[in-house]
């Protein structure tokens, strides 16, 4: 190579290297902007809320006195609602996803359904709240209850679970399906024995991300009539008398962590802000816990499945 040529290449390479660095800097900047903003918000919330956080705060009902108010009814309500949501949305969402991906014929109707499901995932949550108010509360007469709240949030996350299930199923290689069919398996056997186990990590992640989304939803719960001052717990699901299981808790009035927070932030007294921050801290911890569980489960299941 002649000297000019070598010099020319050096310059050209240097220019391209500069572009690499420039993009990395811009990308890092964008990333930091997001992460730092979140960190600042989280730290501020912790600083405000941590002094209020303690066993008393978790075990106390709301009160007119900010220093005595707690989130007992709220977190129990959130858990009860999540239970209903999970029981309703998980089987339906997974089954719908399996049907669409593995059974549904490829025709116009299926395409329309697919487009609708994908779009539903982006519908604002307040719309679900208003729909549920009309459907569950007025038409079905389920009242402003835990059941209504759970079903509403189930409706909200159903598209998320369906889409996640389908994407997880698509990651199972066709060679696995063909191997199962070649052994004489029926469609259901191939799905149950190979496709769903192979897709399980992805499906589980989708479910938990859906539930984490649901636990933070406020607007639809307010739309269907969440109570913001609940000084009692829903009836216990287990009872000392026959038949030992009681479903009365489903029909109890409810509140939930985000609703409680919202209520405290709109109060005029400054002292309730600290309560709201503490409740937010609890909510964030619950969400982080769920996401952590999703990551751990995915890691555990991925290790078992290698194609």
């Amino acid at each position: 190579m002649s000297a000019d040529r070598a010099a020319y290449y050096r310059v050209a390479i240097r220019r391209r290297r500069h572009l690499d660095v420039a993009f990395a800097v811009v990308g890092l900047g964008c990333l930091m902007l997001g992460v730092l903003t979140l960190t600042v918000l989280f730290v501020e919330m912790a600083v405000q809320g941590l002094p209020r956080l303690g066993i008393d705060f978790l075990m106390a009902f709301p009160s007119r006195h900010p220093g005595e108010a707690g989130v007992l009814a709220a977190w129990v309500g959130s858990l009860a609602i999540m239970a209903v949501t999970a029981l309703a949305a998980v089987p339906m969402g997974v089954a719908a996803g399996i049907y669409l991906e593995e059974y549904a014929p490829r025709n116009l109707l299926t395409t329309i359904i697919e487009i609708n499901v994908t779009n539903l995932a982006g519908v604002p949550s307040i719309i679900y709240g208003l729909t549920a108010l009309g459907l569950f509360v007025y038409l079905f007469g389920l009242g402003h209850s835990v059941l209504t709240a759970g079903l509403t949030l189930a409706l909200l996350i159903l598209p998320i679970i369906i889409v996640a299930t389908r994407e997880a199923l698509r990651t199972v290689p066709d060679s696995q399906r063909e191997a199962a069919y070649a052994c004489g398996a029926s469609t259901w056997q191939a799905i149950r024995d190979h496709v769903v186990p192979g897709a399980a990590p992805g499906i589980l992640t989708g479910i938990i991300i859906g539930l984490a989304r649901a636990i933070g939803e406020t607007a639809p719960l307010i739309a269907i009539g969440a109570v913001t001052f609940v000084a009692f717990l829903p009836p216990s699901p287990v009872s000392p008398d026959f038949p030992f299981i009681s479903l009365d808790w489903l029909m109890a009035p409810f509140t939930a962590l985000p609703v409680q927070m919202f209520n405290w932030t709109v109060r005029p007294e400054e002292a309730f802000r600290a309560n709201a921050a503490a409740a937010a801290f609890v909510l964030v911890l619950m969400t982080l816990g769920m996401n952590g569980l999703a990551i751990w489960l995915r890691y555990r299941l991925r290790r078992q499945t290698r194609w």
Partner: peptide, 12 residues
């Protein structure tokens, strides 16, 4: 009629 594929595809 059984089948053996091009790429070995044992189940996990």
């Amino acid at each position: 009629i059984a089948m053996v594929f091009q790429k070995p595809n044992p189940f996990p």
